[in-house]
Design a binder for these strands. Structure first.
Length: 156
DNA sequence: CGTGTTTGACCTGCGC
DNA sequence: GCGCAGGTCAAACACG
């Protein structure tokens, strides 16, 4: 497992996550902005959502999709990944092993609750995270990850 | 003293 | 071309 994250998550959690469980993967969009033809046909495997899972892997393994399409462009960051999923939890600050810095809050019309925008604190890491409450189920939190980390998640 | 959070303002894209 | 919604930035503040 030499992924970009997905480790060091076994002993940092508290009991706050008692009611923490993944409900379902809402949606995911991946697109190659350079060459749509090389787009991976699988699913976006961002180690992030597995890390936030406290041991229960929701997506299983397979995290080498980037090696498949990075062969013709020659540069990384050739594609963005957006992963959104709903989580049943009281807290909205899901600690996935990365350090997040909130950079904005916006009131969305679709939801009575404002949406929060987070960004990875590590320099060079352009991963963004968007946290918002489910409109129909306030006890659910919709977390959207965008991008991939280029460092270890071991920075707590 | 350093880091992270807060909040309003500003910018951009899209729809009409 | 204008308006709306969403997304981002930046200054000030609070906290460790």
């Amino acid at each position: 497992m030499d992924d970009t994250g997905f480790r060091s998550f076994e002993s940092s959690r508290s009991d706050n996550y008692g009611s923490f469980e993944f409900s379902e993967l809402l949606e995911f969009d991946e697109w190659a902005e350079a060459d749509p033809g090389v787009m991976v046909s699988g699913y976006p495997v961002d180690p992030v959502y597995a890390a936030a899972n406290d041991g229960r892997s929701i997506v299983g393994g397979s995290s080498n999709v980037e090696a498949s399409n990075a062969s013709n462009i020659g540069s990384r960051a050739a594609r963005k990944e957006k992963v959104a999923f709903r989580t049943m939890t009281e807290i909205e600050i899901l600690d996935d092993g990365f350090k997040w810095r909130k950079y904005g809050k916006k009131m969305v019309k679709n939801s009575p609750m404002p949406r929060n925008y987070y960004r990875c604190s590590i320099e060079g890491c352009a991963v963004k995270k968007r946290v918002e409450r489910d409109r129909e189920d306030p006890r659910y939190v919709i977390t959207t990850y965008e991008g991939q980390h280029n460092h270890q998640a071991n920075m707590l």
